[in-house]
Simulated assay, not measured.
Amino acid sequence: MTANPILLQKKYSRVIECFAKQQGLSLDAALDFFYHSQVYQLIRDGVSDMHCMSDAYLAEELKQEYEEKVPVNEVVKEKTK
C-alpha cells in the first residue's frame, strides 16, 4: 500500500524530530541519517505498511539502525557539537 506523499512528508518530519531528540542530534544530522537509512527505504517503498507505525516506533527503529551503523566514538563526537 502506498501513502499520500504529502502525509508521508509530514510523517518523515515528525519521525526525524523525535529521533533527533531521542539521540541528542541536530536536526540536520538526524535528517541526513534518516534519508540514508533502511527505515526510510521501507517506509518510502510501502513495505509492511511501515508508514502506519507510530512516530515513536519508527524513531526507535532508527535508533537501533543508528547504533548498528555509527561507531560509539562517532556518536559521542556528534552529540558534543
Rank of each mutant, 00 (worst) to 15 (best):
R44P: 04
T2N: 13
Q22F: 11
E67W: 03
E74S: 11
P5D: 06
S13F: 11
Y12C: 08
V47K: 15
T80N: 09
L8A: 07
E67N: 06
Y57E: 07
M53L: 15
E74K: 09
E17V: 06
A20K: 02
R14I: 07
K21M: 09
I6E: 13
T2W: 11
Q22A: 10
K69Y: 00
M50V: 05
Q23F: 01
E67A: 00
E68P: 02
Q38S: 13
G24H: 02
F34S: 04
S37G: 04
R14V: 10
T2M: 14
V75E: 04
A59F: 02
T80E: 13
K63S: 09
A30C: 03
S37L: 03
V39D: 02
A3N: 13
K81F: 10
E65G: 03
L42T: 07
M1A: 14
S26Y: 03
V75G: 02
D28F: 07
A20M: 02
P71H: 06
V39Q: 05
A20S: 08
Q38E: 14
I6N: 12
D45Q: 14
D55T: 15
A59V: 02
D49I: 06
G24M: 01
E65V: 04
L42G: 11
S13D: 12
K10Y: 13
G46H: 06
F33R: 00
S13P: 09
V75W: 04
K10N: 15
V75T: 08
F34D: 03
P5S: 07
L62F: 01
Q64C: 07
Q23W: 02
D55F: 09
E78W: 10
A30Y: 02
E17F: 08
G46T: 05
I43Y: 09
G46Q: 04
L31V: 07
